[in-house]
Design a protein around this nucleic acid. Sequence first.
DNA 1: GCCAAACGATGACACCTGTAATCGTAATAA
DNA 2: TTATTACGATTACAGGTGTCATCGTTTGGC
Lengths: 122, 122
Amino acid sequence: MAERISEAEHAVMEVLWEEQPLTAAEVAERASPERGWSVHTVKTLLSRLLAKGAIAHEADGRRFLYRPAIEREAYVGRESEKLVDKLFGGRVTPLIAHLAERRSLSPEDIAELEALLKELKP
Amino acid sequence: MAERISEAEHAVMEVLWEEQPLTAAEVAERASPERGWSVHTVKTLLSRLLAKGAIAHEADGRRFLYRPAIEREAYVGRESEKLVDKLFGGRVTPLIAHLAERRSLSPEDIAELEALLKELKP
DNA sequence: GCCAAACGATGACACCTGTAATCGTAATAA
DNA sequence: TTATTACGATTACAGGTGTCATCGTTTGGC
């Protein structure tokens, strides 16, 4: 469950986080517009995610219904932490500084962040 | 130069960003404590980084001196953006919210962020 | 001048990833 | 009841990645 999820696998996870449970065909349908995958490809990705324990399936007649076995919240939290650790020694501020520089934050962004900070203060 | 840099390659880049230029042996020396790499491994990684254009080398007698060809700033900026785009639809605030939740921000972190926001405001 | 050490270049190899196709079987349509 | 279709399971295969070893050559020590 702490297994690494690849780029393509992540795209499948996003589909399932969006709507759930889904059959393999449905996942393919929803994922294909952007990725142009064959249904075979999607099935392979689903198998790998199953093996990693990132999703679960239950039988529905002859086919399976798939659903996420890990929460998106947990996943994005872990990934964010990994990036901050890897690139910024665990410090959040330089991350924000970088993002602010590269894509200027809108006044709304800034207001949001200020509100968030206010909440975080004791 | 916009080539993907792998995990192991990134570790080599960090060594070179820290100190530069270095010979292959020196890179291995500095990288090995944490990774336990053989010098062969490091040389392979250097070759691949060269091929990708992420580093450059100049002859120093019979060996090479390696140095980064891309700036750390640019790299971490790109990587941060990729994460924000992939996981948060490009929005910074939810990223911070996640990080704040998972590893509580210290009062210093919060102060830093506040200072940063103040600077960003017109 | 010769031998060992040191280099870069090249090769190796297993595992992961992206992207399918094929196989065997079960269900469905006719 | 048989032919087709729809599934999951299995197999495939090239390119990337992590991790080294070997080859051929240069050079520094003696």
